Amino acid sequence: MQLINVNKVRYRRHLSWVIGICISGLAAGSLGISQLLIALFPDQSGSHFHWNLLGVIVSSVTIGWLLNKYRHHDFMTEVTYVWELKKTLNKINRKLPKLKAAAANGNLNAMLALQYCYSGSRLLWELDDNTIVMEELTIEQAKLDALMTQYKIILHVEDYNDSLLKEF
C-alpha cells in the first residue's frame, strides 16, 4: 500500500458523515427490528432481551455489509484509504519488537518496514490531529536514520509491501 496525501478536510467531513450514518442506522435499525419482533412475538414475562439483541446484531451486520459494498464509492475514497492504512500499520506494529531488533542488525526489510510505519503513522496522526506522540515518533525516526547512515542504506517507502513482514 502506497502512502498518499489525503485531503484532510474532505477526509474528516466524510468520516463524520460515515460515523453519523452508522450510529443513526444502528440506533434506528436496532429499535425498529426489535420493536417489530416484540410486536410479532411478545414474551409473557416481559423480557425482550433476545429480540433487542437480535435487532442490534442484524443492524450491525447490515451496516458492515453496506460499508463493505460501498467501500469503493468516490465518497468513501479517503475513509477507506485511512482504514486500510490503519490495518497495514497494525500488522507492522504487531511485529515491531522483532523489526527493531532485525533493523539494529542491518536487515534492510526490517528498516524498510519501520520507515513505512513511521511515515504512515505520521500521515495518520496528522490527519486525526493526534500530535501528542509525534515527539516519540521523531525520536524513533532519528534512531532509524542513524541505522540507515551506519549501514549506508537509502530507503524509499514506495518499495514497501506486506510480504516483507513474512520474514519476521
Rank of each mutant, 00 (worst) to 15 (best):
Y151Q: 05
R71D: 11
T88M: 12
K100W: 04
L40Y: 13
I132Y: 15
T138E: 15
T62L: 15
Y116E: 03
Y151R: 03
S60K: 02
I132D: 15
I23E: 13
M76H: 10
S45I: 09
S119P: 02
L147T: 03
K69F: 13
E126P: 00
K152S: 15
L127W: 07
I19R: 14
I19P: 03
R71I: 00
L99I: 02
A142C: 04
S119Y: 00
V82Q: 06
C22M: 11
L108M: 11
S119C: 06
V133M: 15
Q35A: 13
S24A: 15
A104S: 12
L147G: 08
I139F: 12
L66K: 07
V82F: 07
Y116F: 10
N105I: 00
L36Y: 12
K87T: 12
L37W: 04
Q44T: 12
T131K: 14
M134C: 09
K69A: 14
T149I: 12
F41L: 10
Y151G: 04
I132P: 06
D74Y: 08
I23G: 12
M111P: 00
K100L: 04
F75C: 06
N109Q: 09
L99T: 00
L112V: 00
L96A: 03
K98N: 11
T138D: 15
A39C: 05
A103G: 05
R71S: 14
D145G: 04
H50S: 14
K100Q: 12
A110F: 00
T88G: 05
K152G: 10
V133C: 12
L147W: 07
L36A: 14
N130M: 10
L144R: 00
I19H: 10
L99S: 02
S34I: 01
K91G: 07
T149Y: 12
L137N: 05
A113E: 01
L144Y: 01
S121G: 10
S47T: 10
A113F: 00
N52I: 02
R94I: 01
V133W: 14
Q115A: 07
P97K: 03
M134I: 09
H50I: 13
Y116R: 01
E135Y: 07
A28S: 09
N107E: 08
L37K: 05
V133D: 15
R71T: 06
S45F: 11
T149V: 10
F75L: 09
E84N: 14
S47L: 14
S121L: 09
K87G: 10
A104K: 08
Q35T: 11
S34M: 07
V133G: 10
L36C: 10
Q35L: 15
H48Q: 09
P42L: 04
G64L: 08
Y81T: 02
A110P: 01
Y151V: 03
Q35S: 15
A39K: 11
I57F: 13
K87V: 05
H73I: 01
L96C: 01
N109D: 07
P97D: 05
R122D: 04
F75R: 09
L67K: 06
L37R: 04
Y81G: 00
A39R: 13
S30D: 06
E78T: 01
G55L: 03
T131E: 15
E140C: 03
L67C: 08
H50P: 01
A28M: 12
G29W: 06
L67G: 11
